[in-house]
Design a protein around this nucleic acid. Structure first.
Length: 574
RNA sequence: GAUUCAGUAGCUCAGUAGGUAGAGCACAUCCCUUUUAAGGAUGGGGUCCUGGGUCCGAAUCCCAGCUGGAUCACCA
């Protein structure tokens, strides 16, 4: 990178780095720096009477500085929080040489630098617990200025809020926005709670392929890729259902996987192309049993993260306390639209959908129409956790036929805050029925349903050896994390949400500039002036370009010999 | 994909009947021994997203594009 491209503040920091080196201070030391406390534990446990924490060593990032002559205050932020530092010249520099304070601390250490300090804890006249620093050590020099976010009584000043910058530059977001870290810690707690719960039941955590020759287990469009050695098309998984069931067939009685799945579909505040699901399969169980497991597990998640079954989400308070409300799909539609669709055929359903302002098209089968009606008229109204049970058979090709009602399957979803958070079945284990259901999907695909499932011969082959009756569950971790952390967007619970690539300025190589006669040392200056390709140079007014170059030379004190106007003309005309 | 709003200093944001680009924080210099979003004073810093057009003159008006937000559609 050419120095001319840097902002003034970045240049000043690089100069500080040079000066540190000249003073024999390594701005990036290799050796470990042993801390013996964190900011939050000091603030929680320090007591003026006990006079504890009289020899602490902590490390972190300098977040603010207030220099008052020979005494200074700074704020140090570590993983757990912030604490004020008090630095006094003569405490840091016990002999005649005051360089460490006057030069190193006051001039060469910037906001954003990572330092280690040793000292004792005391309380200032203003009543703030602070570290009286006796030793300060540079651990890592920061070359870019941080956005300065200040806070007083919960009011935030100059918050760093631009979503694009926050998502693209998550490290910075985490540094200056402490609540962001909290969200991700909660997300991890959600996952850990579920994992502990499942492990306590002795289910086995497994891993299954992400690259799959056939994609299956859900209705969605996949990402497609290619394996060179095999010369074969592979898909990124849209679900892991079929592989997990093959493990059940193989004799594991309880398996689960936290899995990244990939769907090549729209992106918005509820959808990211890659997302996380937890899928669980347990042999010799049915969907009633699974429903109670979900209630218990999610209630535990809320309790572990919030210490309560109640979670504030937007304007609602959602209560995960068991038992949750239950509807069948038909009874839910009846409740919210007043229409009983349970006996209708496809024609009647279509008419009903149109009457209810639900979009239907030619590709939709009976199940899909019902799903649409439910999606429009019921789902958004279900704020408290609610189970919807017994789905039409057409939209559930992997679920077992209902034990008592024709045309339905044993399936439930849990809806919360107007969104699906999980999906579960009594799994279909009749290989002949399974083959028929796949064939019905093929017919849907022929009608134009892009999400219809593909027939998976290997899966059927495995099932033909005999699969125990099994209940299966998929639970959307991102969606659950959004609710638990009160986040409005999935991007707020993913560290690095998918973004469009930033458009890079196209810039010609040095060779091209040299080919029109530009001396190497002038190339970055021409680019700085805005001529990033020789195409642009050729279009330039040579007088203007000449003036701009001389101006930049002077302004940045580059001390280059200015080119003659004839030379600049020659570049432009070449 | 559609509609709509936005893009100005490192950060948060003002600004315009078209007429020399502003503030706070940050940064620099000087002063200052316990300050509390902010100690005092002075100062430097800009491709006003990009490219066209209108105009004597565009950050401002028009057109196109890029990026992002919001809403809607598909999907978990």
């Amino acid at each position: 990178m050419s120095l001319i491209e840097l902002s003034e503040q970045e240049l000043i920091r690089r100069q500080a780095l040079e000066e540190l080196l000249k003073l024999g201070i390594n701005p990036y030391p290799a050796e470990k720096y042993e801390v013996n406390a964190t900011t939050s534990e000091i603030i929680a446990n320090y007591s003026d009477e006990k006079k504890n924490y009289q020899n602490v060593t902590i490390a972190g990032r300098i977040m603010s500085r207030r220099i008052m002559g020979t005494a200074s205050f700074a704020e140090l932020q570590d993983e757990k929080g912030r604490i004020q530092l008090y630095l006094n010249r003569d405490n840091i520099c016990t002999d005649e040489d005051k360089t460490l304070y006057n030069i190193v601390f006051k001039r060469l250490i910037d906001i954003g630098d990572i330092v280690g300090v040793t000292g004792y804890i005391f309380i200032t006249k203003m009543g703030e617990i602070s570290v009286h620093v006796s030793n300060i050590k540079m651990l890592s020099k920061s070359l870019r200025p941080l956005p300065i976010v200040k806070e007083k009584d919960g009011q935030i000043f100059d918050a760093f809020t631009d979503p694009e910058q926050r998502y693209r530059n998550r490290s910075l977001d985490l540094i200056v926005n402490p609540h962001v870290k909290e969200t991700f810690i909660k997300r991890t707690k959600v996952v850990n709670t579920m994992r502990d719960y499942l492990n306590s039941k002795s289910y086995i955590e497994v891993e299954t392929p992400i690259l799959q020759p056939l994609y299956g287990g859900a209705a969605a469009r996949p990402f497609k890729t290619h394996h060179n050695t095999l010369d074969q098309t592979l898909y990124l998984r849209i679900a892991n259902e079929l592989y997990l069931k093959r493990l059940i067939i193989g004799g594991f009685d309880g398996v689960y996987e936290f899995s990244k799945d990939f769907r090549n579909e729209g992106m918005d505040r509820f959808h990211n192309p890659e997302f996380t699901q937890m899928e669980l399969y347990v042999a010799y169980k049915d969907y009633f049993w699974m429903l109670e497991l979900v209630e218990e597990m999610v209630e535990k998640v809320a309790l572990n993260v919030h210490g309560s079954t109640q979670v504030t989400v937007g304007e609602n308070i959602i209560d995960f306390k068991r038992p949750w409300k239950r509807y069948t799909m038909y009874s839910a539609i009846k409740e919210f639209t007043g229409i009983d669709i349970s006996e209708m055929n496809e024609e009647q359903l279509k008419e009903t959908a149109i009457k209810l302002n639900v979009n239907v098209d030619i590709t939709m089968g009976k199940g899909k129409i019902i799903d649409e009606i439910f999606g429009v008229h019921c789902e958004p109204k279900l704020i408290q956790p609610t189970f919807i049970m017994d789905y039409p058979i057409e939209m559930s090709p992997l679920a077992k036929k209902h034990r008592s009602v024709n045309g339905l399957v044993e399936r439930f979803e849990a809806i919360c805050n107007g969104k699906e958070i999980c999906n579960a079945y009594s799994e279909l284990n009749d290989p002949i029925d399974q083959r028929n259901r796949f064939e019905e999907q093929l017919l849907l695909a022929k009608r134009g349903d892009e999400e219809a499932m593909v027939l998976d011969e290997e899966f059927l082959h495995a099932m033909e050896y005999g699969m125990p009756p099994t209940s299966g569950l998929g639970i959307g971790i991102d969606r659950l994390a959004m609710i638990i952390t009160n986040s409005v967007s999935i991007q707020d619970v993913l560290f690095f949400p998918q973004m469009r690539p930033e458009k890079k300025l196209t810039r010609d190589d040095n060779e091209k500039y040299i080919s029109i006669g530009v001396p190497v040392q002038w190339i970055p200056i021409i680019q700085k002036a805005g001529y990033s390709t020789i195409e642009q140079v050729k279009k330039a007014n040579p007088n203007k370009l000449h003036q701009e170059l001389c101006g930049l030379n002077k302004k940045h004190k580059l001390e280059l010999q200015n080119p003659k106007i004839e030379e600049v003309k020659a570049w432009v005309e070449k």
